[in-house]
Amino acid sequence: MPTVVDQDARTAAHRLARASTEVFAPAVFAAVMPLVVAVHSTAPAVAVGFGWGLLAVLFCSAVPYAIIWWGVRRGALTDHHIRVRSQRRRPLLLGSLSVLVGLTALVLLGAPPPLVALVVGMLAILAAILAVNQVWKISAHAAISAASVSALIFVFGLVATPLLGVVAVVGWSRVRLRDHTAAQVVAGTVLGPLVGAPFFVLLG
């Protein structure tokens, strides 16, 4: 029979998993990564990089998240993580369209190549997730976190390798919360860097 200590440990683990899922959600990475890459690629002109980053964030994070938020508000989506696989197609398509519009603007306005490469990679990952999602609920959390950490390691070198722990925590949290199976998390972890990294390396 579970003891009070066991129950408390399970409760604490669940809270940690919930917090990790929120803090390292795809929308958060989509908001942070363009800023980091843009500022790094335009240094020491931090203000210029920040401006480019904000433009990318608008189309890669703010608009897609607003689409999801509106879907939840209307009752079309169960929650902002879109746990029901059948509900994911429309917001993923609209989110991809937003990223595509943002990518077009960045290219036409002459954004830094690393930032353009990052957004191309994000668009490719979204397309891959959308394709797989037609038949199987792959973990977008795992895919985006793994791809983001891979990009950071490419930009900053081995000093960024401890961030791989974030990918592990994200994967654990998704399984712990029973939003995904271990297989779905592993598949997402592999898909993200596999699809996104080549674009970042070749175009950046």
Score class of each variant (00 low, 15 high):
residue 115 L to T: 01
residue 64 P to D: 03
residue 151 A to D: 09
residue 138 I to V: 14
residue 178 R to I: 08
residue 196 G to Y: 00
residue 47 A to S: 15
residue 168 A to H: 10
residue 136 W to T: 03
residue 172 W to P: 05
residue 162 P to W: 02
residue 148 S to L: 00
residue 23 V to F: 10
residue 40 H to I: 00
residue 177 L to G: 06
residue 185 V to Y: 04
residue 112 P to I: 01
residue 49 G to T: 04
residue 9 A to S: 12
residue 58 L to C: 11
residue 114 P to T: 01
residue 130 L to G: 12
residue 43 A to E: 05
residue 64 P to S: 05
residue 17 A to C: 07
residue 80 H to R: 14
residue 125 I to F: 09
residue 94 L to D: 09
residue 110 G to Q: 03
residue 22 E to A: 15
residue 81 H to K: 09
residue 184 Q to I: 10
residue 192 G to Q: 01
residue 102 G to D: 03
residue 198 P to T: 03
residue 1 M to Q: 10
residue 103 L to N: 04
residue 189 T to S: 15
residue 176 R to Q: 14
residue 71 G to C: 04
residue 53 G to M: 01
residue 65 Y to Q: 13
residue 14 H to I: 09
residue 18 R to L: 12
residue 50 F to T: 06
residue 176 R to E: 11
residue 51 G to W: 02
residue 74 R to V: 10
residue 117 A to R: 02
residue 38 A to S: 07
residue 184 Q to W: 14
residue 123 L to Q: 00
residue 20 S to L: 14
residue 39 V to Q: 02
residue 46 V to F: 11
residue 98 S to G: 06
residue 19 A to G: 08
residue 178 R to Y: 05
residue 3 T to P: 06
residue 110 G to K: 00
residue 140 A to F: 02
residue 112 P to K: 01
residue 148 S to A: 11
residue 48 V to C: 06
residue 72 V to G: 08
residue 204 G to F: 01
residue 14 H to R: 13
residue 186 V to T: 11
residue 1 M to L: 12
residue 122 M to R: 06
residue 89 R to P: 12
residue 166 V to F: 11
residue 53 G to P: 00
residue 101 V to P: 08
residue 134 Q to L: 13
